[in-house]
Write a protein that binds this DNA or RNA. Structure first.
Lengths: 344, 344
DNA sequence: CCTTGGCACTCCCGACGCCCGAGTGCTAAA
DNA sequence: TTTAGCACTCGGGCGTCGGGAGTGCCAAGG
C-alpha cells in the first residue's frame, strides 16, 4: 500500500505539523528531516499521499496538512512510542497512590494527564459494575429521612438521601440495614438489577418500598466524570474562535459519558488504547478534535477510562503514553486496595 | 456631585454599551434615548463624565465606554432593578426544591443562574460552619478501614475514609460511634475546633488517634464550589482571545474559594448583593471581569454564595436579580429542610 | 447662562492594490 | 528514478486611501 518513503514522509509531515501548527512544505521536509531527498522528489511523494487521501492542502500552493485518515494511518502504523523515564513513571504512581480519597485520586489523575499531554483530560469514575458492595449502612437523620451509604470495593462511597412517607423507628432501621447487608454484601453491583432486586424487595416484606428506593439508588454512580484543564483547549490555535461549543459539550456530564462509552467501544481490544480522530466522532462539536483513551481495571473488570482531548493535530505518542501510564497507575492503586482488603 | 443630566447620560451609556459592546457616541444617545438633548449638549456632559473618571475613550474620536468607576456609580446609584415575574420566580423555586440531593441543588442553582444571566455561574457550597451535625456514623469496611459519614443540618453528606494502624472490632466501632454521637450530635460544626476537639479526644480514651482523625475530617467540606457554563465566558467578545487565563483560574477550586470569600467580605451588609468590578479584583486574571454575588443563609447564618461572572460590561441589573432570587431560593429550601426536621 | 448648530479635525476600519515568499506541478536532463 | 529548473498560484503583509463616526470648539440664539 504505502512504500517506505511515503511512510517516512507521512510521519515527518505529522511530526512537523503537530509541533508547528503550520502546513508543511517539501522544502522544510527535505531540510529538517534526514530523508536524503530533494524537495522535488518529496513533492511527488506528497502528491501521492494526497491522492491516497492522507494529506490535504488548505489551499493551492500551501504546504500539506494531515487529513483525519492520515492521522489514522500515523497512529496505527507509524507512531514511535517512547516509554516514560522510570523515575517519572514512579513519581506519577506515587502521586496517584498518595490520594486518600476516590475523588482525589481521579482529580489528581486528570490533572496529571492534562499536564503530561498539554491537553484537556477526562477521567471516567469507576463504574460500580463489577465492583462489589463492601459495606452498606443506613444512617437515620430524622424519623423520615435516612441516608444510604454504600462503600464499594473500588473505594467509592456513594450516599443518597431517602425520604419515607411514614416514620420509622431507629431499631427498625438497623434491623433493615442488617437484612440488607446479609443479602447484598459482596454481591457485584451490576448483578443488582431487575429480578434480583424485585425478589429481594419481596422477601424483605413490609419495607418493600423503602428497599426499592434504596436499591435503585445503589445503582447510580455519583459523578461519573472529572475534567481537568479545559484551559488547554482554549490555548490551541485551532480553537481560538470556537471554544464555546466544546466547553458546552464538556459541561454536560451525560453527553461526555455517552461519548466516552462510544470511544471505548471502538477499542481494538479491551486493554488497548483507543483513539478517535476528528470526523470519526459522531458529535458535531468534536469534528475538529481527537481523543486518546485508556481503560483502567479493577480486578479483571474494565472500570473506567483516562482520556485526553485536543485538536486532531495532537501529539498522539505523548498522549498515548500519558493515558496508558496513568490508567495503569489507577489499575494498580485499585488493585492494591483490593488485595489489601483481601488480606484481612 | 453628579447632576441629573449626567446621571441620565451615564445610565444611557452603560445601558447601550452593555447591549451593543460598542463605544457609544453622543449622536446615538440623543437618538435612542429620550433625553431631549442635542448631540452637542450631550458631548459636553460626556466630557464632564470623562473628567470625573466615569467614562473612557478607547481612542480619540471614538465613542465613550464606562470605566470601572463608572460601572461602580451605575450599580450603586443608577441601576434600575426590575423584579422577576412571579411565575418565573415560582418556577425557579420549584426547580430548586425539586433537587433531591445537596449536590444536585447546587448544580441546578448554578445552571439556572448561568441561564438567567447569560454568564458563568459559581455557587459556593454551604460552609459547614453554623450547620449542626444531624447524624454521624462510622461504617466499617475492613478491620482497618472505616468510612466516616456525617450528615449536617444543611443536608450535606460528607464522607471520609479513615485508615487505622491497628485492627478494630466491629462492636468497638459501634461503641465508638455511639460515643461520638453523644458528644457531637447537634453541635454546630464550627464549634468543633482546637480545644473542643482536643478535650473530646482526651475523654474518649484509648482511640484518641482515631478520634483525632475523625474530627479533623469532619471539618473539611467536600467540594466547595460548583461552576456552570464556562462556555458563556468564551462567548463574550472581550474574551475571544484570552479565555485561557480565566479557565485556568476557575480550574483551581482553592483560588475560586479564596476569591469568593474576598468578594463577600466586600458586601455592604450581610444580606446585600456584593458586586466587584474589574480592577477592584486582586487577581490579575479578573481585571476585565465583574462578579455579582448574593449570599444565602441557613437558619440565620450566612452559608455560601450564588455568583455570576462576566466581563465588566455586564448586565448588572439582570445579574443582581438572578443571584438574589436564586440565593433566596437556596435559603428557602434550606430553611424548609431545617423546619421540616424541627417538626419531628 | 445654557443650549445648539456648524465646522474642522482626528482616528479607526475596511477595501484595494501591490509585492513577496512559499509552495506547487510539470518537464527535461542526469 | 531522481533532480534541477521554471512558470504559476495563492495567501499574507503592507501602505494607501476614503468613508464614517465621533470629537472639541466656537459662535449664535433662546
Amino acid at each position: 500500500m504505502l512504500n517506505q518513503r511515503q511512510r517516512d514522509i507521512l510521519r515527518a509531515v505529522v511530526d512537523d505539523y503537530v509541533s508547528t501548527a503550520e502546513p508543511v512544505g517539501s522544502r522544510t521536509l527535505s531540510r529538517k528531516y534526514g530523508l536524503g531527498l530533494s524537495p522535488a522528489t518529496i513533492r511527488n511523494a506528497l502528491a501521492d499521499l494526497e491522492d491516497e487521501g492522507l494529506l490535504r492542502q488548505p489551499h493551492t500552493s500551501a504546504g500539506r496538512v494531515p487529513s483525519d485518515q492520515g492521522y489514522r494511518v500515523f497512529v496505527e502504523e507509524l507512531m514511535a512510542l517512547s516509554p516514560l523515564e522510570p523515575s517519572v513513571r514512579a513519581d506519577l504512581l506515587r502521586r496517584q497512590a498518595e490520594a486518600d480519597d476516590l475523588r482525589d485520586l481521579l482529580t489528581q489523575t486528570a490533572r496529571l494527564a492534562a499536564v503530561l499531554s498539554g491537553c484537556t483530560a477526562i477521567v471516567r469514575a469507576p463504574r460500580p459494575a463489577g465492583a462489589r458492595i463492601r459495606a452498606l449502612s443506613l444512617v437515620p437523620v430524622t424519623d423520615r429521612d435516612l441516608v444510604l451509604v454504600v462503600v464499594s470495593s473500588t473505594g467509592a462511597v456513594t450516599h443518597r438521601p431517602i425520604t419515607l412517607d411514614e416514620p420509622i423507628a431507629p431499631d427498625e432501621v438497623s434491623a433493615l440495614a442488617l437484612g440488607l447487608r446479609q443479602h447484598l454484601l459482596d454481591r457485584p453491583l451490576d448483578a443488582l438489577t431487575g429480578r434480583v432486586l424485585e425478589s429481594l424487595a419481596e422477601r424483605m416484606g413490609r419495607h418493600r418500598d423503602l428497599i426499592r428506593q434504596v436499591l435503585c439508588r445503589v445503582e447510580a454512580p455519583d459523578d461519573a466524570v472529572v475534567i481537568a484543564q479545559t484551559a488547554n483547549l482554549a490555548r490551541q490555535p485551532e480553537f481560538q474562535q470556537r471554544v464555546d461549543g466544546l466547553l458546552d459539550f464538556l459541561d454536560r456530564p451525560e453527553r461526555v459519558l455517552r461519548w466516552m462509552h462510544e470511544v471505548r467501544s471502538g477499542a481494538p481490544s479491551p486493554g488497548a488504547v483507543s483513539i478517535r480522530i476528528g470526523g470519526e466522532h459522531r458529535d458535531p462539536e468534536l469534528q475538529a478534535c481527537s481523543v486518546v483513551a485508556a481503560s483502567y481495571t479493577i480486578g479483571d473488570e474494565v472500570a473506567g477510562e483516562v482520556a485526553v482531548l485536543g485538536p486532531t493535530r495532537l501529539d498522539y505518542a505523548t498522549a498515548v503514553t500519558a493515558v496508558s501510564v496513568l490508567a495503569a497507575g489507577l489499575s494498580e492503586v485499585f488493585g492494591a486496595r483490593l488485595s489489601g482488603e483481601g488480606r484481612q
